[in-house]
């Protein structure tokens, strides 16, 4: 059981890697960006666990800025992904413009909430 699952895992990882290698570069950039945002968020959660949640608004805004960024990037990734049939009518430029707008709003709110 353990053996088969581990071999399965290996083949899975291998196939994942190969599948992912086929992803276009721009999607890879987005993925990198998402990973960056999630990593920042995790760091903050750990930090909060260490020093306590006193400036709670700052923590919230810091965390949510990362989560928000990640979520928006995922949305963008969904929209610009060529394989995604649902959005083939949506021009990538339009998607990106929406994405920029969302980010601007997000960061405006974050700045408001941070202090």
């Amino acid at each position: 059981m353990a053996k088969s699952s581990s071999t399965d895992a290996v083949t899975l990882i291998r196939s994942l890697r190969s599948a992912y290698a086929a992803t276009p570069t721009n999607l890879k950039i987005i993925d990198l960006y998402v990973v960056f945002a999630i990593a920042t968020a995790l760091i903050q959660v750990v930090y909060m666990g260490i020093v306590g949640s006193f400036p709670f608004n700052s923590f919230l805004s810091g965390l949510l800025s990362c989560v928000g960024t990640a979520v928006l990037a995922v949305c963008l990734r969904i929209q610009v992904n060529k394989e995604n049939k649902e959005f083939k009518d949506l021009a990538p430029e339009r998607a990106f413009a929406d994405f920029v707008l969302c980010n601007l709003v997000l960061h405006l709110v974050i700045m408001n909430f941070l202090g």
């Binding site: 960006y33 960056f36 920042t40 968020a41 020093v51 306590g52 006193f54 960061h107 941070l114 202090g115």
Partner: peptide
């Protein structure tokens, strides 16, 4: 500006910077 919150400030600004770079 609460010193304990500086990492959060940093995180917020780093995501902003990250957004521009991205």
């Amino acid at each position: 500006f609460i010193p304990a919150a500086f990492p959060y400030y940093g995180a917020s600004f780093s995501t902003m910077a990250g957004f521009f770079i991205f």
